[in-house]
Design a protein around this nucleic acid. Sequence first.
DNA 1: AAATTCTATTTGTAATACAAATCATGTTAA
DNA 2: TTAACATGATTTGTATTACAAATAGAATTT
Lengths: 249, 249
Amino acid sequence: MHHQTRNITVQENTIVKASISKQIAEQLRAAIVAGQFKIGQRLPTEDELAQRYGVSRPSVREALKRLAAQNLVRAKRGPTGGNFVVQPSYAELAESLSGAATLLVGMGALGIEEIIEARRALQGSCIDLAANNASATHIQNIEAALNRQQDPGISDEAFCQADVAFHRALVDATDNGMLRFVMYTVIEALIPVTNMVVTVVRERSDIISLHRQMLEHLKQGDSDALKKRMDELLDYLLQKFEQASACRA
Amino acid sequence: MHHQTRNITVQENTIVKASISKQIAEQLRAAIVAGQFKIGQRLPTEDELAQRYGVSRPSVREALKRLAAQNLVRAKRGPTGGNFVVQPSYAELAESLSGAATLLVGMGALGIEEIIEARRALQGSCIDLAANNASATHIQNIEAALNRQQDPGISDEAFCQADVAFHRALVDATDNGMLRFVMYTVIEALIPVTNMVVTVVRERSDIISLHRQMLEHLKQGDSDALKKRMDELLDYLLQKFEQASACRA
DNA sequence: AAATTCTATTTGTAATACAAATCATGTTAA
DNA sequence: TTAACATGATTTGTATTACAAATAGAATTT
């Protein structure tokens, strides 16, 4: 058996014991981050990786699955197929982020009040930036989301989707990738509340009304008024949430 | 062969084709989020899962690896072992977050200027909250990190670690989990800059001096002064970063 | 020349076997 | 009786092999 000696090769790099698939996942990740494998490039076949690291193919595959779960690689079958390094997109990253956030909410590790407070704290300066940097395209996007929301025929799910789109578009107007990355998480974490609220028709129009005012303020570059409306929106959500909680208790 | 029919069972839930391991990963994730498996609880053995879903054990394992990469489950060996639903901790989640953020930075999708701007935008209201909610313990933690930083004997790496700890502790003082979750990401994304800066001795003392002032302001609850110092710190970092960039160009 | 079939390559899945870890139980010795 | 130790059972970790499925390109046939 030759894989014993190869095994040592793997472990001497990372010193000690973590499962082999984890070690390999980390080595591959490091190689990717270091630019050894560039974006869009195909990395060696699973067989080749298995040979190179001196492990079995299933182990390599487990490692690749870990990376796939992080949206770092994507597999394609066939002769031209293989495992490709993937360009990490905001959308996907934000999705995994908000997945984590909703998980925390769902498990009760994060309270809704906490999220609203955080949102309140973070939005202020975002709005300043948005009011400064908003381009015509940004405003169009916001308007489009608002229009979708105003359609009375849409389902609750669609309404919530449009709600998320509205707030995302608002953050997009800051024109700052890092802010988007971070704020998307907070926005997504608030979805449960919105879901809870929009089941009643009256609530929809309240929200839409606030949104419409916010858009107007943004167009006029009045960031103070915009902040005020956003504050009102959060107050509204918090109040409705507490009503619903009290009702259930 | 019985697994043909079972295979259909799996697919009819998710309609169509995604790799089996992915389907199973999603089903398990959904089950966990839905509370079907509670935190800390052991889920069925891999063999049992394989039988239940009508797939092979390697497929189940690939699915579990995906979940493990998301810090959703953890495996333990032995008779009392198994795959356990894990309490998602801020630390680990934030780690995976910042991993993603550093990835974006490393691949050039996020610029340092962008990160600093984001940090500047987000910190303000955080500071207000921190000044209001900071407990004695919080302040102790901040002080401890500062003390570690002041030790002239420590390495550059240790200095940066202490720097991160300082800013984290500052955010912790807000006593808001969501804010921590989000701000950790921004803080970690700034590490490369700090790394770049602290290589010179002079810079260390500049940073420490600002940190010490910030701590004092916090103790006195003077959030305005605290914000000002933080702004100066960011100005400083940005300036040094641009120097370094210009130098290299 | 175009359409089709064939073939090679690569990932996806399965089945099985054994290794390693670890806890529980029983056994032995003090 | 108690404590230390050994043994076994259980579960994940890894390896091996084989075959299925997808797919692109080449070869073949019409």
